[in-house]
Each structure stands twice: as C-alpha cells, then as structure tokens.
Design a protein around this nucleic acid. Structure first.
Lengths: 225, 225
DNA sequence: GCGACTTTGTGCTCCCGTTCACGAGTACCT
DNA sequence: AGGTACTCGTGAACGGGAGCACAAAGTCGC
C-alpha cells in the first residue's frame, strides 16, 4: 500500500528510481529484483520488500516492468508534478545549488534565491536575480507550497527558519551546521557536510593495519561478489 | 569504551561537538545532559547513553566539563589532528566546497582540487590551483592518508572513485548521484542533495491538512480524501 | 558527619529495520 | 497437459537503537 512507507524504505526509493532510469536507457523492458538490487547497491530481498510497500508491481517468474515501476515510484514520492524550491543564503553553497541541474532533472524547480545581505540583492545567479530575504512571504505566496533550503552561516539559520515557517513553508532542508527549532508540523532535514567527513575520519582512524601491500593499491577488480 | 562506538551514536557526536562549542563561548564550565541535549536537539537519556560509549566523563550531581568533553569527543572522532581532503570535480559544488570554511574549522584541510577537464586545470579556486585528475597519485602520496570527495557528474563518478582507490584513498565522500562499486576496505558515504528533497516532498505530499494560522498542535486525525 | 538533592550511567523493554527462507505464481519446453 | 525453472511476495527470526526508570555516586547545606 502507498499508505505508510517506512522511513528507511523511503530513503531508498530515489536510489531505485535512479537505477531504473539508467536501466531504462539500457533497453530491457523488465528487470529482476536481483539485477535492480545490484545496480542500486542493495540486497535483493530488501529491494523486494521495499517495493512490496508500494504494491504488487512485479510479476513472479518475470520481474518488474521498468517503465511502469519507474512511474509508480515517482508517483509515491510525489514527483509527478513539479515542486517549487526557494533557496535562502547565496554564499558558496547557495550559489552552487542555485545552478545545480540535478534538481531540475528530478522535478524540483528553484523559484527564487534570497539573501539577507542587501548588497547581494540584485546579483544574478544563473537565471535568477537574488532577492532580499524580506520578500519571502511574497515568493511563497506566489509559488505555492514549496520547500525551503537554508544555505546560510549557522548564526543566521534559525532566523531564516523562522521566516520560512512564518511564510508558510513546512518542509526545510538545512545545510547550516545548526540545530533548528521549529513548530510541530514542520519537517526539517539536516545535511551537514563536515559531519559526513567526521564520520569518515572516525572509521579511517580505526583501521589499524591497512597498508600491507607493497603497492598502495592495484587495479583490484571491483566485484562485489 | 572508545572501542566500538555504535554507528547511530557516531553520527550524533559531531552534533554534540557543535553544541559544546557554542556553549563553550557561553561561559559555563559544566553542562548537564539535559542542557546539552536541548541544544543538540536530542533526548537527554540518549545523550547520556551516547557519551557513556566514550567513557565516564561526567560527574554525577554536576554534569560534564565542557572543555574536557569537547576534547574527548574530538579525540574519539579523530579530529585532534588535521586531516587532508582532496576534492575531485570542480563544478558548482566542488567550487563551493573548495571555499567552504566549515571544513577548515573542523580539522579538515583541503589540500587539492582536481578536475578531469584539462581546460579547468590551472584555474584558481580560493587558494588552490586546479590540477588535472592525473595528478591524484602524487597528491595523495604527498598529502598522506586523506579523504576523497567526489563532486563530478554521475557519469564520471565511478572512474574517479577507481582513481582514488588506486591512489590509496580509503575514505570517499560521494556527492554524485550514483552508486559506487569499491573494493572491501574502502568506506563510501553518499550525500545526494536531490534525494533529501525527494524525502521532504514525500512527507509534504502526505500532509492533506492545509496550513491554517491556528496551530494544529493537537493530534489532528489525518483523514484521507 | 549526615541527610537531602542533583545528575550520571545503565539494565530492560519495545520497536523498527534487515535478512533468511520458502510458498505462490508465471513462463517455457517437451 | 505436465513438468521444470525462475522470480516475486512475505512470514518469521534476528539485531540494533530509542526511551524509561532507577540505582549509584557525587555535591551542598547545616
């Protein structure tokens, strides 16, 4: 059922979608869970269970119809219609996201870039003119229910979050290294770039005897079994 | 014990570290788990359990010494020494990360930016001159055990990953929307920007309740249709 | 010194997610 | 038609993490 997809599954659906898109170009009209799982980098049983939450879109003995499955996943995630995005904070990262083609390709449309610094207002980033952060209510009112992206320094993040919420935004993607306080009903996801590095650093540090081979690394065939 | 911190805990340690840093400026020499948990946005019991994996650094009836705890977490994560980072792919995102101050502040030092496009080689990004991707072995050999960051388009990601592994890199942070195949012993973390948006879009779509100014703090039954 | 108070550290339970293993349904060959 | 090979869907076992509640341990006031 499309009612109530587990959070862990939901996080993998976009990956399956990507995998299907690459396979679609490949020609084959159907895929087995085994193939698709390999491309998506997961266990085939997990893949099947994940897909079963959406409904029975596979055919036993055959596999899944690539095109159909792709549509179904898109539908569940809600990508069948374009979704507007506003980016607040036109620093390095905001600048990059404003020009990131990966958003448009996946049904997201950046409708505005805003910045608190009045000197930045008026700058041109890609197709967009940077607007002052005070314009938020107008932007959201015009653009419909949209997703707010915060790419400001940590100090400004909470203020921006408050403004977004006040403007009616209920989904926030936060790149600032700060914990945001928002009212119930508002969904916040945090992406902390240095956090990821720190996790990697931890694991790297716990590998005591790694370099045994004379050569740093040969062209080890990457066969994940 | 610092041997074997659970993965979920590990992901929160950097958040605690941030919280401690902000508190440190605030003056108080000690914090209770309750305070720190509030700032970090987690449950106090969870915080205590997390910290207990590192050792008994708190004092009952008093709390945790801010400075000491900060050092201990840094030590466990492995941030007491600078860690070199190489960024491959100088597009929008690579450009942004190359100039991101959040890395330097947390013990990561970008030692090189590389790109496969020879026309980009020689460009100046921040303090760094962009080098051709063929220089990877040299860079890694000189810089020591470092973390590789992939900010290329998806098509180039696997090739870059192979090059990184061949050069001896065993920790990779991948921003390209692609699943990387790497040999055992190499750690890959994926950050997919549009994946996060897709998850938000799903939740947004499942909220039938239109936004009314009167806060829906109560358990509003989420009636379908 | 002693009791009251504060706060940590942790045993225990519950729940979510992963994985295995197998029944059920489909296609194809003889 | 019957048998065989293949693949999905899922019940059940398993493991890890979250949260509760409390005992242990320390501080403070007198």
């Amino acid at each position: 059922m499309s009612r109530g997809v587990p959070e862990a599954t939901l996080a993998r659906l976009p990956v399956y979608l990507r995998a299907l898109t690459t396979l679609d170009a490949g020609g084959g009209a159907t895929v087995s869970s085994e193939e698709l799982a390999t491309v998506a980098g997961v266990n085939s049983a997990k893949l099947r269970k994940d897909l079963s939450y959406l409904g029975s879109y596979g055919v036993r003995g055959v596999g899944y119809d690539v095109e159909y499955l792709r549509y179904q996943i898109s539908r569940v995630i809600g990508l069948t219609e374009d979704r507007p995005v506003v980016i607040v904070g036109v620093g390095n990262l905001g600048h990059a996201l404003g020009g990131y083609s990966g958003f448009a390709n996946r049904g997201f449309r950046v409708i505005a870039l805003l910045d608190a610094d009045p000197r930045r207002a008026g700058d041109l980033v890609g197709d967009h003119v940077v607007r002052p952060v005070e314009d938020l209510p107008d932007v959201v009112a015009t653009g419909g229910p949209c997703i707010g992206v915060i790419t400001t320094p940590a100090e400004a993040a909470q203020d921006v979050a408050d403004r977004l919420v006040a403007a009616g935004v209920r989904s926030i993607l936060n790149f600032a290294p700060a914990v945001l306080a928002v009212p119930d009903g508002v969904d916040v996801r945090n992406v902390d770039l240095s956090l990821e590095l720190q996790i990697l650093a931890y694991h790297e540090r716990r590998r005591p005897a790694p370099l045994a081979e004379g050569a740093p690394a040969g062209l080890a065939p990457v066969g994940p079994a």
